[in-house]
Write a protein that binds this DNA or RNA. Structure first.
Ligand code: FES
Ligand code: FES
Lengths: 148, 148
DNA sequence: GGTATTCTCGACCATTCGAGTCAACATTGT
DNA sequence: ACAATGTTGACTCGAATGGTCGAGAATACC
């Protein structure tokens, strides 16, 4: 498994924040409920996202979390790298730790896959994710109408 | 990390076998030495590869392991899936375990990445890996000649 | 038949990582 | 003052990783 729950949950949370942009701070509890994330665990993810400047948090009553940038300025690659640390599919690609070629001989394949993956992740913004989700909702709504 | 040492070591071993195809059985100890794999650990990987029909093994003096198919009939995808079990980058892609779309909303990105990855892995055969390695060796030999 | 060589299989083990939980504390609106 | 909310670090518990080990089985060779 390349991604742990951190990446998944963290992105879910960011999608939620993006969806409620401009409505003031969103509380931890709300995010956790809507996105099915253990509340106490979500804390750590939000902390990480704050450290890396993706969100701002305010304490006290009516406090909560909100995006620190606009959704189209945030790409999936940076988000996930913040949450997961590194997305390298193999140890040896983590930094540049080139093995003796004679010993392994498959690094090049994984380097290509890694590059493609990063490119794709970099091309998807939080705004895209929200847009996709909204579209999905519309589809479901239409389908429901047909059933009725 | 998507791949554990199993995948890496296992593929290394297969490359080694492919490189010495037609020279009779290759011993565990030789593979382990050349490819820097703990000998006792390699056992388990070879066992798995045998179970899935990639290699044949013979016991007794002058025994060892050899490919059960030609190198161009073996692709990286099948190899790694045998060694690692599943290459799904996220839990939810492991089978078809579709989450409520409203909860997560990013599955589609990873589905695309997963598909691309599998396609690429399926397109690389053991023969390709050996060819790449040989080419690398030739380059190094040429470079060495210049130094002299 | 005996012995050396090699693979085979399962049990065992240590360490790390994943996924949380919890409690104490800081901040702020009313 | 007090209640709501976020912040932090310590802690836990189970699973996965990355091995090791030893008994046994097959086989070539003398
Ligand atoms: S050491 Fe990098 S792929 Fe094997
Ligand atoms: S549940 Fe599949 S990506 Fe979040």
């Amino acid at each position: 498994m390349l991604l742990s729950t951190k990446g998944d949950y963290g992105v879910r949370a960011m999608i939620d924040l993006a969806k409620h942009e401009g409505e003031g701070p969103v509380q931890r509890a709300e995010i956790a409920r809507r996105r099915q994330i253990p509340e106490a665990y979500l804390d750590h993810l939000l902390a990480q996202l704050r450290r890396d400047g993706f969100i701002r948090s305010t304490r006290g009553p009516a406090g909560g979390h909100q995006l620190a940038k606009t959704p189209d300025e945030i790409c999936l690659l940076h988000l996930l790298e913040s949450l997961e640390g590194s997305l390298a599919p193999m140890q040896c690609l983590e930094n540049d730790d080139p093995q003796e070629e004679a010993i392994c001989g498959q690094d090049w394949v994984w380097q290509e896959i890694y590059d493609d993956m990063r490119a794709k992740l970099a091309s998807v913004s939080l705004a895209d994710l929200v847009e996709h989700e909204r579209e999905h909702e519309r589809e479901r709504a239409t389908a429901a109408r047909y059933v009725i």
